[in-house]
Design a protein around this nucleic acid. Structure first.
Lengths: 142, 142
DNA sequence: TTTTTATACGACTAAATATGTCTTATTTCA
DNA sequence: TGAAATAAGACATATTTAGTCGTATAAAAA
């Protein structure tokens, strides 16, 4: 399946919200969840994961919440996907780590697909939260 | 997950084999399966599906097998993905058919991701079996 | 000090999807 | 008639994804 995970979708939605409020106040998981009808507990876990990776910063306790912890142009779509879903790659054998592909030596498509893989990953890495905030994706994708 | 399905991988491998032999003889599922260590029954079903969609043509009975039924430049990667895995799209809401996305109206990323979706689908549609046969993917992807 | 509101964390469940197998029927050639 | 092939669909398994729940911890406010 060639699809973004819900985690990544929710992360993008949340980060956009957080970014738009970062200079004003902290955003809570509850607020984001209610703003966009996203499952709260799941969103909370996503935000925790993003916190671990220093994408955002969390403040605990009452009046707590989340705030951005990185410049928006340093938060890439590929980065989010890899943080939330693990290493990205069109095929097992195009992942950074070598894998147990039992037919590597008789595989006739690996090299060609590797090129496509590189192309797509590069595209995803070129897309940042900044582009989402400014609706600039069209320009980036040219 | 941003990954090609095994079905699509196996289909590409098989089509490449079939194409390379199309002027000489029919290829059987068994041969392809043994050439590349691909599960035979699964491959058989994939080839049947491709037959239904007129990508290949089947000949039943002993001495039977499969042969290409379309010019290699008309067999696109996107076409194969859609035949084998169903409609492709980065998100549910970017599929051709409208879907039950409960938060469409509060979704802040749909429009931007739709652009990315279009870009990727266009790329996949631009890649054909011909490119795989001639190792031309690098040129196509620019 | 207690209550409220928030994040942290991990276990757990449920649903969906992907992958692979098996059985039976049918077709064709030798 | 037997062997070798596709056709078709049911079945089984494994993996991944999505979502939930309970408990702990932290901080502010009552």
């Amino acid at each position: 399946m060639l699809r973004l995970s819900k985690k990544t979708e929710y992360a993008l939605i949340a980060l956009k919200d957080i970014a738009l409020n970062s200079r004003i106040q902290l955003m809570t998981a509850r607020e984001i969840s209610e703003n966009h009808q996203v499952p709260r507990d799941l969103l909370a876990k996503i935000l925790q994961t993003l916190t671990h990776h220093s994408i955002i910063r969390s403040v605990q306790g009452a009046k707590g919440g989340y705030i951005l912890n990185k410049p928006v142009e340093e938060i890439t779509l590929l980065g989010l996907i890899e943080i939330l879903d693990g290493p990205a790659g069109l095929m097992e054998c195009s992942l950074p780590e070598p894998v147990n592909c039992t037919y590597l030596d008789t595989c006739s498509i690996r090299c060609q697909l590797a090129l496509l893989n590189q192309k797509i990953l590069a595209m995803l890495q070129g897309i940042t939260l900044r582009h989402f905030l400014r609706n600039e994706l069209k320009a980036v994708l040219g």
